[in-house]
């Protein structure tokens, strides 16, 4: 029973809140596009491969973000035929987008440094790592 409670707590910790994701989805999509031009479905696959469950509110929610990024000229889109022959909208980073991504990376690095310095070992409670260990050995 105790182990179950600890596991639940650990799962809760691992889940990112919708609020914290919403604010950073733009940066995530810019980062995905920094590997080269891509289209919505492919970007979802890439994001899910790197961070499963990151699109918890639905895969379709990336499109409003992509359109917003395009309005701000951080990315550009063009239509061309995909492998299936269907017309597909491809996105690519603009110079402005590359600069924004680089700025956001710096911001993140600074924030992570501050949080790690202040929170230190308390970033994850001891019960969290022990749960991972218990799960691995059971």
């Amino acid at each position: 029973m105790k182990l179950y409670a600890v596991r639940l707590y650990a799962i809760k910790l691992m889940k990112l809140s919708k609020k914290s994701l919403d604010g950073n989805m733009e940066t995530l999509l810019l980062a995905v596009l920094s590997d080269g031009p891509s289209y919505g479905y492919q970007m979802v696959q890439d994001l899910n491969a790197k961070a499963p469950g990151v699109l918890k509110t639905g895969e379709g929610t990336i499109y409003p973000v992509l359109h917003r990024l395009e309005e701000r000229e951080l990315i550009q889109s063009s239509w061309r035929a995909g492998e299936t022959g269907r017309q597909r909208r491809y996105y690519r980073l603009t110079l402005k987008g590359k600069k924004a991504l680089s700025d956001n990376r710096l911001q993140w690095a600074a924030l992570t440094r501050v949080m790690t310095t202040v929170l230190g070992d308390r970033l994850a409670p001891a019960s969290f790592s022990s749960t991972i260990h218990l799960e691995a050995t059971s």
């Binding site: 919505g40 479905y41 979802v44 379709g60 499109y63 299936t84 269907r86 017309q87 909208r89």
Partner: peptide
């Protein structure tokens, strides 16, 4: 349903439909 809530001009709606439909068909 998506486009009813988005309430965009016709030309923009068509592009959104095409893009989202491609995603769904691929999925």
């Amino acid at each position: 349903r998506v486009l009813v809530y988005a309430n965009k001009p016709a030309s923009e709606s068509e592009a959104i439909r095409k893009e989202l439909k491609d995603h769904l068909q691929q999925k």
